[in-house]
Deep mutational scan, measured.
Amino acid sequence: QLNEKPLPEGWEMRFTVDGIPYFVDHNRRTTTYIDPRTGKSALDNGPQIAYVRD
């Protein structure tokens, strides 16, 4: 279940091809599976993935 609260300024939620949510921090140009609103991860110790700018 996804959090309904808005993401912090400069953050975006995207999904992997497998449908796993991850979070893009455009301020720091990093990505993470940890939801910045809750501190909880969509994966157990998930790796960071490459930042992609559209």
Rank of each mutant, 00 (worst) to 15 (best):
Q48Y: 10
S41V: 12
F23H: 00
N27R: 08
I34H: 07
V52Q: 11
T31N: 05
W11K: 04
I34V: 12
R28I: 04
R14L: 10
N45L: 10
T38W: 05
D25K: 00
L2V: 06
D44F: 10
P6E: 14
I49S: 14
G39V: 13
R28S: 15
H26M: 03
T38D: 07
W11N: 01
Y33K: 04
S41Q: 14
K5P: 06
R14C: 09
P6G: 14
T38F: 04
H26D: 03
N27M: 14
T16N: 08
I49H: 14
T30S: 09
Y22T: 02
L43K: 13
V17R: 11
L2S: 10
G46A: 08
F23V: 00
N45G: 14
D18N: 03
P36I: 01
P36G: 00
F23R: 00
D18P: 07
I34G: 05
R53N: 15
P36T: 00
L43W: 11
T38R: 08
D25G: 02
V52E: 15
T32Q: 04
A42E: 14
E12F: 01
G10I: 00
L7R: 01
D25C: 01
R29F: 10
P8D: 05
I34C: 06
P6W: 04
T32W: 00
Y33H: 05
E12M: 04
D25T: 01
E12N: 05
N3W: 03
E4K: 10
F15I: 04
V52Y: 12
Q48M: 04
G39T: 11
P36W: 00
F23W: 09
Q1L: 15
E12Q: 08
D44M: 09
R53K: 09
Q48R: 10
D35Q: 01
D25S: 05
V52H: 14
I34P: 00
L2W: 03
P8S: 04
I49M: 11
L7I: 08
Q1N: 06
I20Q: 12
D35Y: 00
T16A: 09
T30K: 07
T32G: 03
L43S: 14
D25P: 00
T32P: 00
D35L: 00
V52N: 15
D54Y: 00
P36R: 00
Q48K: 11
Q1M: 15
Q48N: 12
L2T: 09
A50D: 13
L43N: 14
N45C: 08
T31E: 04
R53H: 13
F23Y: 10
Q48C: 07
N3S: 09
D25F: 01
F23T: 00
E4D: 13
P6M: 12
G39N: 11
T32M: 01
I34Y: 11
Y33R: 04
V24L: 15
P36F: 00
E9N: 10
I34L: 09
E9C: 04
T32C: 03
Q1P: 02
L43C: 13
P6H: 10
P36L: 00
K40P: 11
N27G: 11
P8I: 01
T32F: 01
N3M: 05
Y51H: 15
D25Y: 00
P8N: 05
N45W: 05
S41A: 12
P36C: 01
L2M: 13
T30R: 05
P36H: 00
T16W: 02
D25V: 00
V52S: 14
T32A: 01
Y33I: 03
N3H: 08
Y33C: 03
P6S: 14
G46L: 07
D44W: 08
E9H: 10
E12R: 03
R37S: 04
R53S: 11
I20P: 04
G10L: 03
D35M: 01
A42K: 15
E4Y: 07
T31W: 02
V17L: 10
N3V: 01
Q48S: 13
T30G: 06
D44L: 09
R14A: 09
Y22Q: 03
V52W: 06
V52A: 14
V52R: 13
A42D: 11
E12K: 03
G10E: 04
G10D: 04
G46E: 15
V24E: 05
A50G: 11
T16H: 05
G19D: 14
E12Y: 02
D18V: 05
H26Y: 05
N45S: 14
G39L: 09
Y22N: 00
I34D: 08
K40E: 12
G19Q: 14
K40M: 10
W11S: 02
N45T: 12
V52I: 10
D25R: 00
V24I: 15
K5H: 06
S41C: 08
Y51D: 15
K5Y: 08
K40I: 13
L7Y: 03
Y51A: 14
E12V: 05
N3K: 07
E9I: 06
S41E: 12
R53P: 11
T31H: 09
L43G: 15
G46F: 04
E4N: 07
N27Q: 08
L43I: 13
Y51V: 09
T16R: 07
T30E: 14
G39P: 09
K40F: 10
W11P: 01
Y22W: 07
P21Y: 06
D44V: 07
T38S: 12
Q1G: 03
W11Q: 03
F15A: 13
V52F: 10
Y33A: 03
T31M: 03
S41H: 11
H26P: 14
E12P: 00
Q48I: 03
F23C: 00
D54V: 00
D25Q: 01
R37P: 01
A42Y: 14
N27V: 11
N45A: 14
N27H: 10
Y51S: 14
I49D: 12
P6K: 11
F23I: 00
R29G: 06
N27F: 05
V17P: 12
E9W: 06
W11R: 01
D18W: 02
K40H: 12
R53W: 06
Y33S: 04
G19W: 03
T38C: 12
D25W: 01
N45M: 10
Y22I: 02
E9A: 09
T31R: 02
R53Y: 04
R28E: 07
W11F: 06
G46I: 04
N27S: 11
E9P: 12
T30L: 15
V17F: 04
E9Q: 05
I20V: 13
L43F: 09
P8Q: 04
D18T: 10
R29Y: 06
F15Q: 14
P6A: 14
G10C: 04
A50W: 07
R28G: 12
F15S: 12
F15E: 11
R37F: 02
P36N: 00
P6L: 12
Y51P: 15
I49R: 14
Q1K: 15
Y33W: 04
P8R: 02
P21H: 04
H26A: 06
T31V: 06
G10W: 01
M13T: 04
F15G: 07
R14Q: 04
S41I: 04
R29M: 12
Q1T: 03
N45I: 06
R29D: 07
K5R: 11
I34Q: 06
T38H: 10
R37T: 06
Q48A: 15
D44T: 15
L2N: 13
D18R: 09
R28A: 15
R53T: 11
G39R: 08
D44I: 08
P47Q: 15
G19N: 15
I34T: 08
P6T: 13
D35F: 00
M13Q: 11
N27A: 09
P21L: 10
T31S: 07
K40S: 07
V52P: 14
D35T: 01
R28M: 09
P36Y: 00
V24W: 06
F15Y: 08
D35P: 02
D44Q: 10
T38P: 12
R28F: 11
M13L: 10
M13Y: 06
